[in-house]
Simulated assay, not measured.
Amino acid sequence: MSEDQRMGLHALVVDDEQPVLDELVWLLGRDERIASVRAAQSATDALRLLEVGDVDLVFLDVVMPGLTGLEIAKVLTRFKHPPRIVFVTAHEAHAVDAFELNAVDYLLKPIREERLRESVRRARDDGTPSQAKPDDTIAVELGGVTRFVSRRSVTYAEAQGDYVRLHLLDGSSHLIRTPLGALAEDWDEAGFVRIHRSTVINLSHVREVRMVSGRCSIVVPYGAELVELQVARRHVRGVRERIQERAQ
Rank of each mutant, 00 (worst) to 15 (best):
A11W: 02
L12M: 05
L12T: 04
V13A: 02
V14Q: 07
V14L: 11
Q18N: 15
P19Y: 06
V20D: 14
D22I: 12
V25N: 05
V25Q: 04
W26S: 03
L28P: 08
L28T: 08
R30N: 13
D31Y: 13
E32N: 14
R33N: 07
R33K: 09
R33C: 10
I34M: 08
I34F: 08
A35H: 12
S36H: 15
R38W: 07
S42T: 11
A43R: 04
T44K: 09
A46K: 11
L47D: 07
R48G: 10
L49C: 01
L49E: 04
L50W: 12
V52K: 09
G53E: 09
V55I: 02
F59E: 01
F59I: 13
D61F: 07
V62G: 14
M64Y: 13
M64Q: 13
P65G: 14
P65W: 05
G66A: 15
L67F: 10
G69W: 05
E71N: 08
E71V: 14
K74A: 13
K74P: 05
V75P: 08
L76M: 03
L76H: 07
T77S: 12
T77G: 15
K80P: 13
P83E: 00
R84Q: 11
I85T: 06
V86P: 01
F87I: 11
V88T: 11
T89M: 06
T89Q: 13
T89R: 15
E92W: 12
H94W: 15
H94Q: 06
A95D: 03
A95F: 12
A95M: 06
D97I: 14
A98K: 03
A98I: 15
D105T: 01
D105W: 00
L107K: 00
L107C: 01
L107W: 00
L108R: 01
L108F: 00
P110E: 09
E113D: 13
R115E: 11
L116V: 01
L116Q: 02
L116M: 03
E118P: 01
S119H: 00
S119A: 09
V120F: 00
R122D: 10
A123W: 02
A123G: 06
P129M: 06
P129H: 01
P129Y: 00
P129I: 02
Q131T: 03
K133E: 05
K133F: 01
